[in-house]
């Protein structure tokens, strides 16, 4: 049980980072990135490839973040003239492209088998001690990511992103280069998603193309929508709830007699139901975006 709880918490922290990243892009900036898993995947594969080549994990993690930031930058540049909806479709296509490259470039990515046998984090420890150390690291990185996202949301950078979300013409009229803002926020979001992906690889000691299916993107979207678009704390809360539920459902078969293939479908069904329920009952999310009262906060 302790092992399971630690596993859920580590996965929550890892996906929390991915959710905070998506929240910065979609919640704060209004960029409907349906290819978030591609940025996650670039970081995950970069870390797998580099640690296999003998790089220590902190360096591999940094390189993975840089690679994913570059990926975000490219997605931002790619669709700079597209309207928001078409850009969203393009991100979905890019994510599939990344997955197909991972699936087919055997020499680099191991093809359908993926890359396994990665040394991973804290090889000196084992059992619960290793899990605890991993959790501490993941939680610290989640905290750093969340504080970074919150800080970026409260300065002029974040104000311009929110204005871009709500009225891009007005942002342009006030002298803000919204294409540059878009590219910047995608590069930052990319670095964060790459960090999540790299941690994921290091924790599970494995990455494969099946981890990059579009469903994973929707899992991250579910966390953000449930938690509250535009609020950093919401993304973290959403990640914890969705991860717990997703990891917990297979245990239903121990309580109620359910065939194990049904619990797999039940997971997907539960995620869909959560999105629907959240959108219908609480479209602002559990932790809604708050209006920033700058005047009242003045010294």
């Amino acid at each position: 049980m302790l092992e399971f709880c630690l596993h859920v918490l580590i996965m929550s922290a890892i996906f929390g980072i991915a959710a905070v990243s998506l929240n910065l892009q979609a919640g704060t900036s209004g960029l409907l990135n349906f290819g978030q898993i591609a940025l996650f995947g670039i970081g995950a594969y970069a870390v797998a490839i580099l640690t296999r080549a003998g790089l220590p994990w902190p360096a591999a993690l940094l390189a993975g973040m840089a690679a994913a930031a570059l990926g975000g930058f490219a997605i931002g540049r790619l669709g700079r003239d597209l309207a928001a909806e078409y850009w969203a479709l393009a991100t979905l296509a890019v994510a599939e492209l990344v997955r197909l490259v991972a699936l087919n470039e055997d020499w680099l990515t191991g093809g359908p088998q993926g890359i396994g046998g990665i040394t991973g984090l804290f090889p000196g420890l084992d059992g619960p001690a290793r899990a605890l150390a991993t959790l501490a690291l993941a939680a610290a990185l989640l905290l750093a990511t969340a504080l970074t996202a919150r800080r970026l949301g409260e300065t002029q950078f974040g104000r311009v992103l929110r204005l871009m979300r709500e009225n891009p013409d007005l942002a342009t009229a006030l002298g803000h280069d919204i294409v540059a803002c878009k590219v910047k926020v995608l590069a930052i979001g990319g670095a964060m998603a790459g960090l999540a992906g790299g941690l994921y690889t290091l924790y599970l000691a494995f990455i494969g193309p099946d981890q990059l299916l579009p469903f994973e993107t929707f899992l991250i979207w579910t966390m953000v929508v449930l938690g509250g678009l535009g609020n950093v704390a919401g993304a973290v809360v959403g990640a914890l709830l969705v991860t717990t539920l997703y990891a917990g459902i297979p245990f239903l078969k121990d309580i109620v007699a359910l065939p194990s293939d049904l619990t797999g479908s039940l997971r997907v069904f539960a995620i869909g139901s959560i999105v629907l329920a959240a959108l219908m009952l609480k479209p602002q999310g559990l932790v809604p975006e708050r209006l920033r009262r700058l005047h009242a906060q003045r010294p």
Partner: peptide, 9 residues
């Protein structure tokens, strides 16, 4: 004008 930004913002 944006509904989720304050006048001062």
């Amino acid at each position: 004008l944006p509904a989720r930004m304050s006048v001062l913002e």
